[in-house]
Write a protein that binds this DNA or RNA. Structure first.
Lengths: 152, 152
DNA sequence: ATAAATAAGGACAAATTTGTCCTTATTTAT
DNA sequence: ATAAATAAGGACAAATTTGTCCTTATTTAT
């Protein structure tokens, strides 16, 4: 469904949203380890999200790291995906046809349509905050625990 | 959602199902042109599907080409995708977590679940025949008509 | 002022996907 | 038997994705 870039971006964003505050930042080392993603690659991806401090904010130097403001937590997951240009799923035809449309539908068009709409709805409705909360309160996990703690 | 390989595979399969019969085969040239896909690459992909004549059948020599038997038309779209190893969507966690499960859910797990199930249901239920019929009877298209006939 | 800690970012490399081109094998028509 | 038409398949190349490593810029603590 999503590329590695998108998977890491979402996991990192959710992790930062849950672990950081204006006072407490998280470093790239901790982030990458916690979400089980390659460090430098994750850093690269976060650069896209910190551009203009739109989604993620960052600070260099000692006690620096990544964090996310309360306002930024209101962004939808789709917005995060759009920023890293991974929003194909919400736009493209399942069969990859450029000309597929309501009047010129591909053979899957009308059957896939409701599913696509649900996908769009889910990703547009859910905010970063929503998912971070699921992480805090519910039983949701963000990493591959078995890798962090092999006993699980 | 799907790779180019998968998109071409599905389009080619549906096209062959609609245009061929045991007596009438379609050549790779016509197939690639009709579904707007690179010829040699499409040929490579079809090799995967003709292996053991499981999904698509082929015949070399003059009047040769690709065709599909009535029996093979009963295969589901998911089966086609499985053969070319593009069935990630039906299996993987949205966030790409190996350990994501009912008891250890990622933050999207329960919300994404019904959508995933619908995806699985759609692709397991729909057969090659179903989609080829949509092409014949309904108003469904399989190519980018604008490329074939720029007036549209 | 200086050293240490951190993200930013450039250059590169490995892996994978996407694509092309050529030769070989097979089949048919003459 | 031979030529022509076709898919099969190998070798390679281009493009893209995924990843690493090193240097630079910035900030903080001392």
């Amino acid at each position: 469904m999503f590329s590695k870039k998108a998977e890491y971006a979402l996991r990192a964003t959710i992790y930062i949203a849950q672990k950081s505050s204006n006072h407490k930042k998280v470093g790239i080392d901790e982030i990458a380890r916690s979400i089980d993603a390659p460090q430098s690659f994750t850093a690269k991806i976060l650069q896209l999200l910190t551009r203009d401090n739109k989604i993620i904010s960052s600070a260099r130097g000692p006690n620096g790291g990544f964090y996310i403001t309360a306002a930024a937590k209101k962004f939808s997951i789709r917005t995060v995906l759009e920023i890293i240009r991974e929003d194909d799923v919400f736009v493209k035809c399942v069969l990859g046809l450029k000309d597929c449309s309501e009047t010129q539908p591909c053979p899957m068009h009308f059957q896939y349509k409701p599913i696509k709409h649900q996908l769009i709805h889910l990703f547009e409705t859910k905010t970063i905050e929503d998912l971070a909360e699921g992480l805090t309160s519910g039983g949701a996990f963000i990493a591959n625990l078995s890798k962090i703690n092999p006993s699980k």
